[in-house]
Design a protein around this nucleic acid. Structure first.
Lengths: 242, 242
DNA sequence: CAGTGGTCTAGACCACACT
DNA sequence: GTGTGGTCTAGACCACTGA
């Protein structure tokens, strides 16, 4: 009863629709702002169910290629709406998958009231204490990342007991605080003396910083700054448009 | 005939399934590696069609929350598999939406054979010429981004004729070369003398670099490095887990 | 009001991967 | 072989929103 597999070679109908539209955009037949045929029309044209055409368009919308609006239809998105996915793996996985040996060393662990800048980020009241951890992650004995982390003890009281001798706080948190939303900020800075030393750099060397805040429900769990030597660290993402 | 809207309040069944699973993960009832009920079972439990349960799981998989494998089932993903979407808007949009005035100035435009490092990136044969463009983007008269771009003239012969006096090459390319795949690389570096001057920095100041290669079909269209003052530039992404 | 997207159901077949 | 995910169809109802 299926009309499947009779039309074009071997790929899924919804992918055929998707690719056909992408082709038209790539080829310039469809320009930003242009109206694309409605789902019904596409279904007719490609001899498939409307749901199938719908899925193709939905995925294109999720990827930012088109913009959909009820009643008015589907249009090719302004290219400004583009975005890219960067994967942020666990540090040890990242290092090992690059073929290096991973090691870790704890620099500092204390429970103190954070400076105001951090306090605000953690959304803590004045004079509330938090767990402060500093550690270094090595790739084949070379410093790869310096981690400066603050943990909200109200959100994860257990953290005070954890040793963090053999394991980075990130791995610990992921195990103990199951799932969370996050905010990421990236920037570059010149390493101050102390940070430079920990990363085996010279004062002033460029450092790539990844700043992250993590929430569970509505509580801020942790605020961390991850510092990488600018000369060697690269953050990559390749988007292959289907 | 629909059993819809009889169960829980007002949201879509597939979202209910999705959120229910996310809840269980957030709450720690489901830990990384744990097996999730199969689609059929979920459908039964939530009194919905299997497709509906399927969609919930599919989306969770796309977001990196779960990992699916035929025959063996669906498991909670190791948190390492997480990823974040960074949007990369057009430079003028980005600047204006931050409330600044956008301006642009062309520094250099020439057609020459690129150095080997660039030549490889563009996938060009030795001694092939390419269009080289350097320009600066300003936010309220402050240098915001220095753009160093190479364009493959084989892919876009028209580019040679474009003036790029009033318009950045990015905007031009997006208009002329309709859609493309891209690779992004981020890193930090210390500004050399010339680059520092263009960004109104001092030699050695940290610079945030976004490197991008773009393809149409299988041709490399352009290779660009975008330099931002490390002290002020921030790249942000906030992920809200549903 | 009417058109377009958004979603659902029920039943079906297929493909892959593990046993 | 057999179970699990992946996808399709056909028909249906709903919801938003622009004219």
């Amino acid at each position: 009863m299926t009309i499947n597999k009779s039309d074009k070679p071997g790929i899924s109908p919804y992918l055929q629709v998707k690719q056909a539209i992408l082709q038209q955009i790539r080829g310039g037949e469809l320009k930003p702002g242009d109206l694309i045929s409605g789902e019904e029309e596409l279904a007719l044209h490609f001899k498939c169910a409307r749901v199938t055409a719908h899925r193709a368009l939905r995925e294109l919308a999720e990827e930012g290629v088109v913009v959909r609006k009820r009643k008015s239809g589907t249009r090719v998105a302004a290219p400004s709406a583009r975005s890219t996915r960067f994967s942020i793996p666990l540090i040890d996985v990242e290092i090992r998958s690059a073929g290096h040996e991973y090691s870790y060393s704890l620099v500092k662990k204390s429970i103190i009231a954070p400076p105001d800048i951090v306090r605000v980020k953690l959304d803590l009241k004045r004079d509330t204490e938090a767990l402060h951890i500093q550690c270094v992650h090595y790739a084949s004995s070379q410093p790869y990342q310096f981690e400066d982390r603050w943990i909200n003890l109200a959100a994860t009281p257990n953290a005070a007991k954890a040793a963090f001798d053999n394991e980075g706080p990130n791995a610990w948190l992921l195990r103990e605080v199951p799932w969370s939303d996050a905010e990421h900020i990236l920037y570059a800075e010149n390493a101050p003396e102390d940070r430079a030393r920990l990363l085996d750099l010279t004062r002033g060397d460029a450092v790539f910083v990844l700043e992250r805040r993590t929430w569970t429900a509505d509580q801020t769990v942790t605020f961390v700054r991850l510092f990488h030597p600018g000369s060697t660290f690269r953050m990559r993402a390749s988007r292959v448009g289907l």
